[in-house]
Computed example of a mutant assay.
Amino acid sequence: MAKLYFYYASMNAGKSTTLLQADFNYRERGMGTMLWTAAIDNRADHPIASRIGLSAEARRFTPGTNLWREVMDSHEENPLACVLIDEAQFLTALQAWQCARLADEGDIPVLCYGLRTDFRGDLFPGSAVLLGIADSLEELKAVCHCGRKATMNLRVSDTGEAVGEGAQTEIGGNERYVALCRRHFAQSLKMYR
């Protein structure tokens, strides 16, 4: 029986690297996979790219993409052993449920990788649904500068100052975000008063 998995973490925890390793493991055994990532994130030459230099081509989803239909159409032509989704926080609620349907009715395991929270500590819509419906939840670990587990994503300005306001989505890497433990995140945004 196929399952829906959600691997979540802060920035710099190796989500894309872990996804690419899982994809390699399936393909090495001759099994078909399909990789997806959010169309909104167009920073890399390859749609899925890790900080350690691994990358792979992937289909890109937008809020209007019907994952159920696109995956099942492909699966009918070339059987898929697994669907892997990077940047899963950008899935819509409907798309997260389509991932569940792929596992439940399509009998295809779906492995989603993404951020749990945004730069304010709020859940992303896709992550919120996945946290509620996934068969398996696994937190990948990143490290704060103090050595504690980093669970938060602090947005910073061009001058390195903490940013606590703005649109939920602003694409960026280490130049825009810093992975911090909750304590240092809260102190940076002066939440403990």
Rank of each mutant, 00 (worst) to 15 (best):
D122M: 13
F119A: 02
F24D: 01
C112Q: 02
G32C: 02
G172S: 01
E165K: 10
R148G: 06
C181R: 00
A179M: 02
A56D: 04
P109N: 14
R27F: 02
A93C: 07
A150Q: 06
E105C: 15
S136W: 14
G14E: 01
Q89M: 10
A167P: 03
G126R: 03
Q168E: 05
G14I: 00
A96F: 11
V83W: 03
D135E: 01
G160L: 06
N78E: 14
W68C: 13
L140D: 00
L4Y: 03
V163N: 00
Q187K: 07
E175P: 02
R176C: 01
V143A: 03
D107Q: 15
G173R: 02
R183K: 02
P63T: 08
V71E: 00
G121T: 14
K15N: 06
C146T: 07
D158K: 05
A162F: 10
E175A: 00
N25V: 06
L19I: 07
R101I: 06
S136F: 13
A39S: 12
A13I: 09
S188C: 04
N66W: 10
E76Q: 14
R60M: 14
L131P: 07
C146M: 15
R29H: 11
T62E: 12
D118V: 11
Y192E: 07
L137H: 04
T169K: 14
V163Q: 14
Y113V: 06
E139I: 04
E28S: 15
E165G: 02
V156F: 01
F185M: 00
G166E: 04
S157F: 04
F124M: 09
C144W: 07
E138M: 06
G132S: 11
P63E: 09
T92P: 06
V163W: 07
F119R: 00
R43K: 10
A142E: 00
E161D: 15
L67G: 05
I108H: 02
W68M: 12
L20K: 00
N42P: 02
I48E: 00
L180P: 00
T159V: 07
W68D: 07
